[in-house]
Computed example of a mutant assay.
Amino acid sequence: MMVVPRVVISAALLLAALLVTDAQYSYNLRPIIGVLSQAPSDSLLSGLVDKNYTGFIAASYVKYLESAGARVVPVLTHQDDAYYENLVHSLNGFLFPGGGVSITNTSGYGAAGQKIYDLVKELNSKGIYVPLWGTCLGFEMLTYLGANYVNLLTACNANNKADPLNLQDGYLDSRIFSQLPEDSVNSLRTLNVTVNFHHHCITPEVFKSSGLSDEFKLLATSWDSDGREYVALMEHQDLPIYGSQFHPEKNQFEWSTSKTHTAIPHYLKSLEVSQSLANFFVEQARQNNQSFTTEKEEEVALIYNYHPFYTVWSTYTQVYFFR
């Protein structure tokens, strides 16, 4: 009887285990996330020679998603319904970024966000798992849409402020916290790793009394500079829709020299938290295998067709502009 060396058996078993684990872990290894653009402010355009742009995305959101193994497609505003329907059926997830425009359909951002939100919910109801994340302004728009177009926001003083999170009862039963590394959860709970730049927020009391808690689960709160408690992190009760009032993308990728942006944490624990949240969301996007109809359509849509501007005069390090 031929004896097979133990080292050969071990190597073969290890390879098989790795292949099985990878197949179970994710079946879409080429996820693409759509990031919603918005109209640039006059101050953001002020440093450009050519100011004839109608949309922008901060490059930090692009890098944030790329750091977790995704590619990005910019989602333009003021497009027809067919444009958004095609993207929702072609992409693997969406991110609504922070910014300074209206969360209602009076802005291109708000109108496009409403359309994408409805389409993503419809798709998920049919069993196609397409995640959506809203950050800061995007979080606020999710509360507006989740409350059936009722603005539940109140004034908050949480600008240029880094804080830990006050985790709520049952947080470990959530999709987010059940999948984050324990070390990142501890950092979120005890260290100033979440940075905030917002003047509006939703209080826990309004979150519950408005009925929004029937739609979303309150996972964590923070406090503004005046001691007001506000909702900092939430996820949909049933669907892969998530919102953070804080900015996880800034820890790694924003380096503004402005005195109004001195609180961004760049130490190791804050970077680990940022990366963990990026990894979580992109992993969510790997749970569907949607794709563009052709490789050419995909190539034309990707962010690689644009180049970022170094916007040293603004609060963003780099920005993609669109016409």
Results as ranks from 00 to 15, higher is better:
83 Y>L: 00
277 L>G: 06
207 F>Q: 05
243 G>Q: 01
81 D>H: 00
251 N>Q: 10
172 L>T: 12
190 T>L: 10
160 N>Q: 01
201 C>H: 10
90 S>D: 05
207 F>N: 04
250 K>H: 09
319 V>D: 15
228 R>T: 13
238 D>L: 09
246 F>M: 05
315 T>S: 14
126 K>M: 03
281 F>Q: 06
169 D>M: 06
302 L>P: 13
97 P>K: 11
63 K>G: 05
100 G>E: 10
222 S>N: 15
13 L>H: 09
164 P>T: 11
6 R>V: 11
300 V>Y: 12
144 Y>N: 09
193 V>E: 12
11 A>M: 06
130 V>S: 08
83 Y>E: 02
46 S>G: 10
17 A>Y: 07
67 S>R: 08
67 S>Q: 07
61 Y>N: 15
14 L>D: 05
38 Q>P: 07
176 I>Y: 02
287 Q>D: 14
202 I>N: 09
6 R>F: 03
229 E>N: 00
52 N>Y: 07
278 A>L: 11
283 E>C: 06
112 A>I: 08
59 A>Y: 14
61 Y>A: 07
126 K>T: 09
61 Y>M: 01
112 A>R: 11
91 L>E: 07
267 Y>H: 14
179 Q>H: 15
267 Y>K: 09
117 Y>P: 10
23 A>P: 00
226 D>Q: 13
110 G>S: 10
95 L>T: 05
57 I>C: 13
97 P>S: 05
263 A>E: 14
265 P>Y: 13
17 A>G: 15
209 S>K: 15
283 E>T: 01
243 G>D: 00
67 S>A: 12
300 V>S: 12
153 L>Q: 14
207 F>K: 04
71 R>D: 14
